[in-house]
Amino acid sequence: MSKIIRCLITILKVGLAFFICLCILSIFIIGYAYPSIHTENNSGSTDWKLADNQLRTNMVEGFSWIKVDSNGFNNEVNENNVDNLIMGSSHMEGYNVNYDENVTYLLNQKDVGYTYNIGISGHTIYCCAKNLEDALEEYRPKRYVIIETDTVNLHITDMKSVMKGTYINPGSSIDRGLKRKLKIYLPAVPMLYNQIKIWKESNLSADTDDGSSMIGYKNTLNKFIERIANICQENNVKCLIFYHPKTEINGLGEIIRYDEDYARLFKECCMSNGIEFIDMTEIFDELYSDKHILAHGFTNTAVGTGHLNKYGHKAIAEAIADFIINDRMVREE
């Protein structure tokens, strides 16, 4: 009997120690990498949004602390009168840079009107195109809707499903029930779970790219862009898509680009449908050749990979601002 009691006490001791360890780790994680809580967005402008007014910390990729606005997006100020609306992925969610270093903040420092950002992780150009109508209806931007994309080599099947209205975001991640509660009260648990998941997956071989066929690609892309253009026209707003490619460097220190042909094709489709297209390739190349600065990557990650850093955000903000200001001057003349 005493053996069983001793055994039970040991189990209880280990369990309690483990729980205290989770509490200590959770406190550490609040400062190190507090995970964002994804909630439903009933308006449909995005598939999900962040919990309002939460604090987000990130020291895993870059170093930043941001505060989410009352709508669940990364904006410093939240005004009703939106001139420009930014849609995009985690690059625009901008949790890798401080609040005063992201595209939206920098644009709001320039004479381009009030810019509001609803960029959120997992929202690729397909997702933005799918949600565009709802987003324009909710925020009613007066001048521009600005869509971010880090790829111009799109998948035919995904474009088609957006046009059919059947597209489902593969990275769907709304936190509900226990998962949500753990993220709020014991963030160490989801963090450990994710890390162990990555650890397990790292033992598997990487999937090979299926290499989508070029047959019909241009037609599908054109229809896809046309759909975006039509929605914008119906809502009486101009559309601007900007593309920011990853920068890979070869052994000689030169930049390698893979999607130049796709970028050209994408630009053609945008122009033929009256959509403005900003290709950041040249600007990023100049940034590298003149100042040896890369637009992606941080001092705690691989060079040039991952999310946009403060230099990337700044270059994009300047390019967009220049474009909007020039466009306004041309129209005024």
Partner: peptide, 9 residues
Amino acid sequence: FTFCGLTIV
């Protein structure tokens, strides 16, 4: 346990 957790995190 905390050290183990930190190693994973």
